[in-house]
Computed example of a mutant assay.
Amino acid sequence: MRVAAIYRYPVKSLGGESLNQADLAERGLVDDRRWMIVDASGQFISQRTHPHLARFGARVSGDRGLHIYRIADNRLLVDLPDARPKGPQTKRVTVWDDSLDAPVIDSPELANELGIPGIRLAYMHDGVERTIDPRYAKSGERVSFADGYPYLFTTTASLNMLSQRYGRELDVRRFRPSVVIESATAYAEDEWTGLCIGSHSFYLPKPCARCVMITNDPDTGEREPAVLTTLATHRKRGNKVIFGMNGIWSGGDGPLRVGDEVTVI
């Protein structure tokens, strides 16, 4: 097996970047989900309630900048040249059950372009603490603004199986993976507990439970409820519908690259 694709999502719930290689860190790929859109109260905003956010992407610009663009025509909408504040001014922000203090960026331009009044952008620098659910972490590992885990692995064979059941090819970006692995056997990942990719190792604490997010077209945000219902016909565990495996990095050196060999451990 080999790495087929690598994706990074600088801003939680916006479109991401397809990379040929990426540097790894405890919280996820470097600069993955280190920014998050929040409302006036600090509550996170996502495609679950605002599916039109799928129409916008984010990419890192230089050492400190961040670009928000429209996916349809790649038009730059918001240029934030200093998107990594580290000063003492912070706000209490909430993502799922976690509340933490993080600096926020005021950008009326962002609120206007995304069509959501009063939103701001929270940034997670290295001093902002958010740990993984202790039921699944080994020793207090940290995570970014991702839903719960630093890495998400999916496989080409599993996507092909779901596409066959659905009746047409589905875009893997619906599932927002960090790493897509080229594989031959659908859902073999259910039994994986660890991976080696190049010099890097990961342990896989649990499958990823899926929600309405996977019904959003990754370019337009238009919803196709049948994607989730089709997955539920053969991938339900208890009251959870699963696809892919959550991962935690155990260490390694150098970048992760498309084409790297993948070994199950």
Rank of each mutant, 00 (worst) to 15 (best):
I214E: 04
K240V: 02
Y151G: 00
M161P: 00
G254H: 01
S178I: 06
L152C: 06
N160D: 15
G252D: 03
R257E: 01
N246W: 01
L162Q: 09
H234F: 13
G194T: 05
A184Q: 13
K206F: 00
H234Q: 11
F175V: 08
A188I: 06
R257C: 06
G194W: 04
T154Y: 02
P207E: 07
T229M: 11
M213T: 10
R173C: 07
I181Y: 00
H200C: 01
S199G: 09
K206N: 05
G221M: 07
G148V: 07
I181L: 08
L170K: 02
R210W: 06
D217C: 11
K138D: 03
C196S: 15
E191Q: 15
D171V: 14
T155Q: 05
T233E: 09
D253M: 10
V241M: 06
K138E: 08
F145A: 00
R257W: 00
G252S: 06
R173K: 15
E224D: 15
Q164A: 15
A188M: 07
W192L: 02
W249T: 02
N239M: 13
L231W: 01
V179G: 08
L195P: 12
Y203K: 00
W192Y: 11
P218N: 08
L162A: 10
S199D: 10
Y166A: 13
S163G: 11
R237W: 03
T155V: 09
R165C: 07
D190V: 13
V143Y: 02
E169S: 13
